[in-house]
Design a protein around this nucleic acid. Structure first.
Length: 473
RNA sequence: GUCCCCUUCGUUCAGUGGUCAGGACUCAGGAUUUUCAUUCCUGCAACAGGGGUUCGAAUCCCCUAGGGGAUACCA
């Protein structure tokens, strides 16, 4: 049987990194199995609808290189892939349930339900629907339905246990007494997650449900629905949650949670995928850097970890740095350029400056700061630096350097290196004594990118001028 | 409260009855480099606790504790 997985987000504004990881796992598994990967938009809650959320979702997936075989913009005979456009399907399904008396109309008002819950809480009882409408006669139900608002609830078993197997968790057992008569159809005629999910997964022929752990407790409801419909349930894998450093569920309060935020901050899509893929799974090898193709090959649904994983920004930063450093130069320049601020962007030597900082950044967002040295005139050196300039050898080095500089039409990194070698041989001055005064004179600082890049960037004229300035002091 | 899930270095992931408990990030030290960064090397650092089972337990079982999730006409 051909594997079919799906990513089924609700469009509530942004894509949570945990949600993205779920998408990624579904994608990796489908691709690896030569299966089909579906994107389904779960927009059944009209109150939570956020404008632009779907577009945002689609663009995130595209930027991260996760393509789907069926979904918005890629409709096929199993669609549509927006739940809001499948209402008749759910209607039909729920009618079938009603007819078989596996579901019933519930006329209880929100107020009564709230009251009920409050009382149960006060008595330290688990809040649950008390089943008042569960055994209403067909006649009464039909009569009231003509004039009262109602929801449709699933008639859940009251006794025994629901036992099921989860790919990640193994066997799980939950008592039916714990399962509430879940609302399947809201009074506005829209289905709830539970109904829509089961119906869609069936008709879209989903074989593997890979989703967050928060769904584990509602599995019995879903299984019961499958049974009522006479359908075979798919296999399930409930993923561990992503956590804050304090081990609570990853939330906005403690940093960025939207995948878009990381993209905006200059993280590399491949690094993000790589990092997230390894949060909750790993192939058991020493290597940690994986391209998407390698992830697809190595992914093993049976090796998914059970425990929640803290989202460790430090490791992401490190990994992102790895991706930047090994990035092909053309792409690096193209990406990095977007982070250069206006003052430098049109500088003809900007590429030299960007190469100079390639090994110094972990994210593209760090580029403006690292480029500061190229943007601003040299600072007046601090005391330690000034002392280095007072050394007797300094004048000699500078003079020699200027002499050599005059011999070339323009200077670049390679020529600079030759010149330095020459001076070293001629004067016997080397190491820190040779290089540091130049650095200080040219940049005003004792740290920075390789001098060759700096000199190439400054060019012959500017280099010469800055050195002369110091000689004349 | 009730139910479910989880528990190996600070973090992440290996390790499924016999390992010096391993890798990566972080941190510390060192090497290379003109400095910083990169790169390389070395080091610090963990089986939540208690009972069993077993010749032998991080690995199997039970209890406790801690953490998380779910308890909606949200997903």
């Amino acid at each position: 049987m051909r594997v079919v997985t799906r990513f089924a987000p609700s469009p509530t504004g942004f894509v949570h990194v945990g949600s993205h990881r779920t998408a990624l796992y579904n994608y990796l598994f489908a691709r690896q199995q030569g299966g089909k990967f579906i994107l389904r938009i779960e927009d059944t809650d009209q109150k939570r609808y956020v404008k632009g959320a779907v577009e945002n979702l689609l663009s995130s997936l595209r930027r991260l290189g996760i393509d789907y075989d069926a979904g918005p913009g890629k409709e096929d005979e199993k669609g549509p892939y927006f739940q809001s456009r499948r209402i008749t399907v759910y209607r039909k399904a729920v009618d079938q349930l009603l007819q078989k008396r596996d579901a019933y109309r519930c006329f209880c008002t929100t107020e009564r339900l709230e009251e009920l819950r409050k009382n149960q809480m006060a008595q330290k009882l688990p809040p649950a629907y008390d089943g008042r409408c569960r055994e209403l006669s067909q006649e009464e139900s039909d009569r009231r339905a003509r004039q009262e608002a109602f929801v449709i609830r699933l008639k859940t078993p009251r006794e025994g246990n629901c036992v099921f197997r989860d790919i990640v968790r193994g066997d799980v057992e939950i008592a039916w007494s714990q399962i509430d008569d879940q609302v399947l159809m809201k009074s506005d005629g829209f289905p709830t997650y539970h109904l829509a999910n089961v119906v869609d997964d069936h008709f879209m022929e989903v074989t593997h449900i890979i989703r967050g752990e928060e769904w584990l407790p509602s599995v019995p409801k879903h299984l019961h629905l499958y049974r009522c419909f006479g359908w075979n349930p798919p296999q399930m894998a409930h993923l561990p949650l992503l956590l804050n450093p304090d081990r609570s569920k990853l939330s906005k309060r403690q940093g960025d949670v939207a995948i878009e935020d990381y993209l905006k901050k200059g993280y590399v899509p491949e690094a993000l995928n790589n990092f997230l893929a390894l949060l909750g799974w790993n192939p058991g090898e020493k290597n940690e850097i994986y391209s998407m193709e390698e992830l697809i090959r190595a992914f093993d649904i049976n090796r998914i970890v059970k425990a929640g994983a803290v989202f460790d920004l430090q490791k992401l930063n490190w990994m992102n740095g790895q991706y930047i450093r090994s990035m092909e130069n053309g792409r690096y320049l193209k990406e990095a350029r977007q982070w250069v601020d206006a003052g430098l962007r049109d500088n003809p030597k900007i590429e030299t400056a960007l190469f100079a900082v390639k090994t110094a950044v972990n994210t593209f967002a760090e580029i403006p700061e690292k480029l500061r040295i190229f943007r601003e005139a040299p600072r007046s050196a601090d005391e330690e630096a000034r002392k280095m300039l007072e050394d007797a050898s300094v004048a000699q080095v500078f003079t020699e350097f200027l002499l050599e500089l005059e011999k070339v039409p323009e200077i670049d990194e390679a020529i600079f290196k030759c010149i330095m070698k020459k001076i070293q041989e001629k004067s016997g001055i080397k190491g820190k004594q040779l290089w540091m005064p130049l650095r200080i004179a040219l940049t005003g600082e004792m740290h920075g990118p390789e001098l060759g890049y700096i000199v190439e960037y400054l060019g012959k004229a500017e280099t010469s001028e800055r050195l002369k300035g110091h000689l004349n002091k």
